[in-house]
Structure formats: structure tokens, C-alpha cells
Amino acid sequence: MYEWNFAILWDYRWVFLQGAGVTISFTAAIVVGGLVIGLVAAMCLLSRFAILRAISLGFIELFRCTPILVQLIWCYYALPMLAGIELTPVTASLLALSCYGGAFYAEIIRGGIISIDPGQKDAAAALGMTPALAMRRIILPQALRRMSPALMNQSILQFKNTSLVSVLAVPDLVYQGQMAAHDSFRPLEMYTAVAVAYFAILFPLTLFVRSRERKFGDNR
């Protein structure tokens, strides 16, 4: 019978804390990066120029239809070869995860925009707004509100996807857990702690998203 020893976790508290810090800052960066990429890709999808639509669609499907782990490894090992540049594990991870998130955000944002009553666009145009101004002042603010639960759900997935950067030796929560496991010969306790840490951060967030969804459902 295995004897659990959770007391040992205390010795590794700084290792875990450091990992959690990396995971959280990574998430913040790839959520922002992903949203920017997603917004641009969504605008291209809705463009009147076929070439922009095609490029955006190609980008989105490329990142939606390949595994994120493969993208990470490819960005780190293959992309530098092709482009003749050097990427640190952190840069490669940020790039891959932002693009991956961006592909999914783009679909959410596009859906949110086309769900807005076309009468809003007509009214904005009739007042003399250019399409760009109408998008910025009238359509997007309404669409963003409507799609905020979906965007938050995707961001939660982004949070969990950061665990993959451990394969490139980025010292996130999972990587730090691995280190602690090797060091202490206590992998069961260490991975349990990692799982609990993810849960402790994400569970309150999912509750928040749920309450937003409910609130949203009320006034629709």
C-alpha cells in the first residue's frame, strides 16, 4: 500500500508558486495575443475582399485542424529552420498558443458580429458613419457584450493549454511539478498538487462565466 505524504509539498511551495506565476502570466499574454489575432482574423473573414477572407480562413483552419502540441513543437523546431530566425521556447510558445487561441476567438467574434441585427448597421450608415466607424462604435460594443461568455470559456481553455509549454521546458506549473517530482521521488503527491492548483484557479472562473451566462440569458 502506497503511503501518501502531502506534508512534503510544503518544501516545494516556492517551486509551485513560481510555476503558477508563469502559468498565469502566460495565460494573460496568450489571451490578449489571441484576442488581437482573433479580432483581426474575424474582420478579415467579414471583409468584402475575397483575398482577405481566403487568407483568414486558411489561417483559422490550419490552427483549428492541427493539434496544439504539434503546433508548439513545430513553432520551436521547424519554424526557425524555415524562417532563418532563432526563437526562444517562450517566444515559440507565445506565438503558437496565441495563434491557436486566435483561430477559435475569430470564429466566436465573427459569430457575435453577424448576430447583431442588420438594422443597427443601416441606422449607423444612415447617420453618415463609415463602415469602420459603425463597426467600432455600434456593432462591436454590442457584439462583444453578447459573446463575452463564449470568449471567457475559450480563455479558460487557453489557461489549460499553457500546460503544454512544459514540453519546451518553459517553467510553468506542470514543468515545475515535474521538477519537484524528480527531486522528491513523490510524483503522485506532486501531480495531485498540480491538478488541485489548476482546479482552484479555474473553478471560481467557470462559476463566474456561468453567472454571466445566466445574466445574459435573462435580458435576451
Binding site: D122, A126, L127, G128, Q142
Partner: peptide
């Protein structure tokens, strides 16, 4: 268009 006003059947106010 900025010099023509239009009023729509469904109001289309900005909610």
C-alpha cells in the same frame, strides 16, 4: 448619407 435623415420601421436605436 449624413445629410439625409432616415427613420426605420423597427426604430434601430442603439441599445
Amino acid at each position: 448619407r449624413s445629410r439625409t435623415g432616415m427613420v426605420f420601421q423597427n426604430f434601430n436605436l442603439f441599445p
